[in-house]
């Protein structure tokens, strides 16, 4: 069964972090317009790990581990604003709930998952137990679900819960090693992850929990994002962004930045939020 493919809006871009920069690759359908790549944000003295996008206000969010913080800036330009700067040590994943206007993040030193509004208010710890190396986190706002990975070498796992922290359960724990990257595609209902220990990309159906291998023998994935029929992942060893067709399960393209260093978080920016509503947006 071929996963459903989302409509491909013009004006979509890949955003990824590398060496204190957030780079911007325009997407033309399922193709990367690599020659039009440019730097969206220069943060030369920072190490940016996670990158996330709010489709409502068209803001990019990122985490920095040098002066541990979460910041945001408008895609149209404008000054970066730090939102979370205290009581934060190693933020490695950010999930945006564009409907409820909240963000979630993982911290691999405090070993917590926290939530706050997109402006950083009403901050609350969602989980502070059974977390060893929490990293990637993604939201499915339409269904009020949250998914995250923990690459704990002794018992790696992918977990899920409701967005208020209730109903926490382990979704995947078999045949998992270093699940660094995680992405959710609302159109196909596929949750896909990239494993740097098993060297694989795999997906699981949100409802049936049917698991499917997309790619193996990959090198060292860090982050992954689903868009259209492709998955795009950053790779520490290749120091690249790799495009994978998830229908044919084949690598289709790669982008090698001029600068040779590890590539970190990746996300997409797009002009319109996906349709939908949830508990918090209903009047």
């Amino acid at each position: 069964p071929s996963p459903e493919v989302s409509p491909l809006a013009p004006g979509t871009n890949l955003l990824f972090a590398q060496s204190g920069k957030i780079e911007h690759i325009p997407l033309d359908g399922n193709n990367m317009r690599k020659e039009e790549t440019k730097t969206l944000l220069h943060l030369p003295d920072r190490v940016v790990i996670a990158v996330a996008f709010d489709c409502e206000e068209k803001m990019v969010y990122w985490s920095d581990i040098t002066q541990p913080s979460i910041s945001r800036a408008s895609m149209q330009g404008g000054q970066p604003t730090a939102i979370i700067t205290t009581d934060i040590q190693s933020p490695e994943g950010i999930a945006i709930d564009h409907m409820s206007r909240n963000m979630y993040w993982t911290d691999s030193i405090l070993n917590r998952i926290e939530v706050a509004t997109l402006a950083g208010r009403h901050r609350r710890v969602l989980f502070d137990s059974d977390l060893t190396n929490p990293r990637a986190i993604v939201a499915d706002p339409a269904n009020g679900r949250l998914y995250w990975t923990d690459w704990n070498r002794d018992s790696p796992k992918i977990e899920m819960s409701n967005m208020d922290g209730t109903d926490r359960t382990i979704l995947v724990r078999e045949d998992l090693q270093l699940p660094n990257g995680l992405t959710f595609d609302p159109y196909s209902r596929q949750l896909c992850w990239a494993d740097a220990g098993a060297h694989k990309v795999e997906c699981i159906d949100q409802y049936t929990h049917l698991r499917r291998k997309v790619l193996d023998e990959i090198q060292y994935p860090f982050a992954i994002i689903s868009y259209g029929r492709n998955l795009y992942y950053t790779d520490w060893r290749r120091e690249a962004v790799v495009a994978v067709d998830r229908v044919t399960a084949k690598e289709v393209d790669e982008f090698l930045p001029q600068k040779r260093s590890r590539t970190y978080g990746i996300t997409t920016s797009y002009p319109h939020c996906p349709q939908g509503e949830n508990y918090c947006t209903r009047g």
């Binding site: 060496s19 204190g20 730097t39 030369p44 003295d45 190490v47 581990i65 001029q258 600068k259 040779r260 260093s261 590890r262």
Partner: peptide
């Protein structure tokens, strides 16, 4: 914009992560 391997920063004065 294109600091030598392992270095970064405005003037390539910093080291990359790791």
């Amino acid at each position: 914009t294109n600091c030598p391997t392992g270095t970064t920063g405005k003037r390539c004065e910093l080291c990359d992560d790791g």
